[in-house]
Design a protein around this nucleic acid. Structure first.
Lengths: 202, 202
DNA sequence: TCTTGATTTGACCATCTGGTCAAACTCACG
DNA sequence: CGTGAGTTTGACCAGATGGTCAAATCAAGA
């Protein structure tokens, strides 16, 4: 497939279809559990046709992960040092919870990768993610120094937000097995809101 | 292999070795990502030898999961309606955190299964787990009615405990990528303790 | 020690899976 | 139209993988 030229209409359509199908399959079965045939079928292509657009299964996975990492971290990026601490943090949590609800496949894609030791994104974690988290925890620490939010371990504060919000997407089956018909997010939203208001109030 | 007789010394040893090896491999790679050869090698057996003790890969996985489910739920089982609410809940959280630290493989085994939709333990979730959680949330609700702890959605309170504690085992790579050399559990313990004290105080 | 059941293994098989390739087909544009 | 680049596919391959089996080896009680 020609790499240098501008992508054709067909290329755009098929690449997008492949990535969407791959997101379905990888998020549901993990990298090893996904098969190229399955992704191709879901994208409405034959296997050789799919491999005309991406050189390998690994390449699809990589393209997906790196393409989505930015989306995934955007809410934390938006945490603004100039804003009101409590509002900023609660807005971040709110957005993370919405992402769990609206983009559960993306959440599970990363969860699958992480729980198996992140063999394919270890570098992104140690570099990009680490840098972003360091930048934002510095803001949190400032707010704590100023007495505007309670003093807490800033890294663990971030971990707790990730854990609490992504839990609903990653362990969706378990949550639904227990809640039955009740909508998880209806209860989750006020719960986490209350939790962090109490936790962060100095 | 004779099923009915009492297990011989060799049977006990090899079965245990297989289950331990399988726990290593399944927790690190998921069901599909694990190979029988890998498990056999780790257990110090040949593949046909391993299949002499368990009829299939699936059988090993099932044996592991059902054998560990009890261990995994024991801390919640111990939550005592007669005890002091705050102490009981904090002790539960403490035990869950210790399990994350001391039994990370078990945590990741379940995480792998759950994130992929729990195809092999769906029934246990809807039955055993659901029943246990219902029993214990009833106790939590009573405590809330009596004004001994803050009023919260009891199911989401449980979810939050699972999310916060298991996060450290399941997403260990990510946590360590961010914390660097710092021991995750050293900071996690006081953090979750503070969090739940603030949250649960009426 | 001998015998019998328990244990172990090398060789093997069918299927699945990621990936290749040459040939066929389709599309856009001059 | 005609043509060349872009697209699609059937047939195929090599290696991995779950599982089988008959034969060989071992262990323990009579």
């Amino acid at each position: 497939m020609p790499e240098d030229r501008a992508p054709t209409r067909i290329q755009k359509k098929n690449r997008a279809a492949i990535l969407d199908a791959a997101l379905n399959v990888f998020s549901a079965h993990g990298f090893r559990g996904a098969t190229v045939d399955q992704i191709a079928a879901e994208a409405g292509l034959s296997k050789p046709n799919l491999l005309y657009y991406f050189p390998s299964k690994e390449a699809i996975h990589t393209a997906l992960l790196s393409g989505l990492l930015e989306t995934w971290l955007a809410p934390l990026h938006d945490l603004d040092a100039q804003g009101d601490p409590m509002e900023e943090i609660l807005a971040y949590i709110q957005r993370k919870l919405e992402m769990s609800r609206d983009l559960p496949r993306e959440s599970r894609l990363f969860a699958n990768e992480l729980v198996q030791g992140a063999p394919r994104i270890h570098d992104s974690l140690s570099n990009d993610l680490k840098a972003l988290v360091d930048e934002k925890t510095a803001i949190l620490s400032d707010w704590m120094d100023q007495g505007r939010i309670a003093r807490l371990h800033p890294y663990h504060l971030i971990f707790s937000i990730w854990a609490l919000t992504q839990h609903y997407a990653d362990f969706d089956v378990q949550v639904r097995a227990i809640l039955g018909d009740e909508d998880p997010y209806e209860g989750a939203e006020p719960f986490v809101d209350t939790l962090y208001r109490k936790l962060l109030t100095p």
